[in-house]
Structure formats: C-alpha cells, structure tokens
Amino acid sequence: MTDHSETQQPSRTNADLTAANAALLAENQRMAELLAEMQNNGDRKVDSKRTNATQHEEHQSESNAKTGETPPKTERRRANPFSEEIMSYKMPQNFTLPMTLTSYKGIGDPKVHVTKFDSMMFLNSDCDPILCRSFPTFLDGAALLWFSNLPARSITSFDEFAKMFINHFAASKIYVRDPNYLSTIKQGPHESIKDYMTRFTTAAMEIPDLNPEVQLHAIKSGLRPGKFQEAIAVAKPKTLEEFRDKATGQIEIEELHETQRNERPPS
C-alpha cells in the first residue's frame, strides 16, 4: 500500500517556497517604491525652498524698486566725518551747486580755495550744513583722500571744517609769482594794448595781496615807447581805474585801425 502523504510532501514544500519568494519580491518592490516616494518628497521640499527663496528675492527687489530703497551691501560704508546734526539736515529741493569752481587737488593756497568757495556759495546759502556737505564736491586727488580719512563725527561746523582744511594744506601753498615779477612784463614791439593788459592782469591775479599802487607802477613801466606811453606820462593816472579808462580809448583806436587795414583792398 502506497503512502500518499510522503509523495505529496515535496509538492507542498515547493509551493510554500514559491509563495514565500513571491511575497518577498512583493515586499522588496513595496520598499523600493516607498524609498522612491521618500526621495521624491525630499526633492520637492528642496525645490520648494529654492522657489520660495527666489520668490522672496524677487519680491524684495520689487519692493526696493517701488520704495526707492537700496538693498543692504555686504560691506558696510565707513562712518561719515560730519556730525549727526549736519547729516540729518534736509537739503532744499531747489538747491544747486555752483559748477565754475575748480576742484582743489592739494596744490596751491587752500585759503584762496575756501575764499572762492565762500564767495560762490554766498548767493546760494550760508547755512553750515549746506556749506559742509557742498565743500567736498570741490575736492579731488590728495585733498579728497584727506577728507575721506577724517575721523567720524569730527566736523561740526563749516568754520571748523575750513580751518582743518587750511591747516592741513598750509605747506602746499605755492606762490608762483611775487610783486617783483610784474616789473619783468613788458609790452612787445607789435603787441596791442589789449593783449598786453590781458597778459599783465593774468600774472597779477596770481599774486596774493598785491598792492594796487605797485600794480599800477608796474603796468605803466611795461608800456613800450610810443604815443600811448607819452599820453599816460602826461595824464599821470593815480589809480588802476584811471589807467584802464585811458587804455580803453587806446584799445578802441587800435581796433579801428585794424579793421581799416583788413578792409583795405589788396594792392
């Protein structure tokens, strides 16, 4: 008699192994899908963070553009040499800077530069904050470098600012000419009175605190021999204004002669 239980046992064992293997494969598949989903979720979170950051930057840029604000820089600007009172002063809307003053570069008389600045600003404003904040606009080179290195909050008034400036560049004061130089300026043999006076006046302007009497004596001594020199010797002008009045008449005569020569037909 055959034992059927023994012949059926291997078949059941194989079926069980097949089922277990299938279950294992299914579990592995489920774990792989779970891991893939987790990975996708992580990527989406990263992308979401990047998107949010980009949107925040764009929103901030749009906000700055609307308000006119400048985004903060990574490198902070150094402290300003002006006091809080000067910097907080609200500049007038209609204020304009004079544009005819040459910038001071550290060479020349600093006192002359301050005087010119004062005179040009006279019609605009004599307000301390405006003077202080306008003056650096007319500095360049070594002078601008000096200003940029001043201690923070060290300037509280324009008088103080001007004094610091003049004292620092006192050694740069250069007088190219002195009154004795004027005695070397002579009218050329074919030089007009107008050209002579222009050349003489230009040199005289470079001499600080020039005595008008010295200037008058020098300009009369520089005239070339001729009718105008003789007329000046007779008239004996006592001031530069009187001399200029005489010179104006002579300039008109010379210009008339020049016009007649140009209109004369060639021979």
Rank of each mutant, 00 (worst) to 15 (best):
E84F: 02
P72Q: 05
V112L: 12
S88N: 10
L139Q: 10
E85L: 09
P81N: 09
F138R: 03
F158Q: 05
G106Y: 04
V112F: 08
A152Y: 10
G141W: 03
L123A: 14
F158D: 01
R77K: 11
P71N: 01
E84R: 11
F122Q: 15
E160Y: 10
M99F: 07
S148R: 13
P136Y: 05
T96C: 08
V114G: 02
K111D: 08
C132F: 11
S148M: 05
R153C: 09
T70H: 09
D140H: 09
Q93R: 06
M91G: 04
R133D: 01
K105A: 14
R133F: 00
S157N: 06
K105E: 13
Y89G: 01
S134W: 01
I86C: 04
N149E: 14
M87E: 15
I107W: 13
R153T: 09
L150I: 11
I130E: 03
R133E: 05
V112A: 07
I155L: 14
F122L: 12
F138I: 10
K105M: 04
L150T: 12
S125V: 01
L101E: 03
K116S: 08
D126P: 00
T74G: 12
N94P: 00
L145K: 13
W146C: 03
N80Y: 01
L97F: 15
R78D: 06
F122K: 15
T96Y: 13
K111R: 15
N94I: 05
V112H: 11
R133A: 01
T102A: 10
E84A: 04
A152R: 14
N149C: 05
S88T: 11
D140I: 01
E160A: 09
T156M: 07
F138L: 02
F117H: 02
S148F: 08
D126G: 02
I155S: 07
R77V: 13
R78G: 09
D126Y: 02
Y89Q: 06
T137G: 04
T137L: 00
K105S: 14
R78T: 15
S119V: 07
M99P: 01
D118C: 03
S119T: 10
P151V: 07
F161V: 05
P110A: 00
M87K: 11
T137E: 10
T100Q: 14
R76E: 14
L123S: 09
P98H: 07
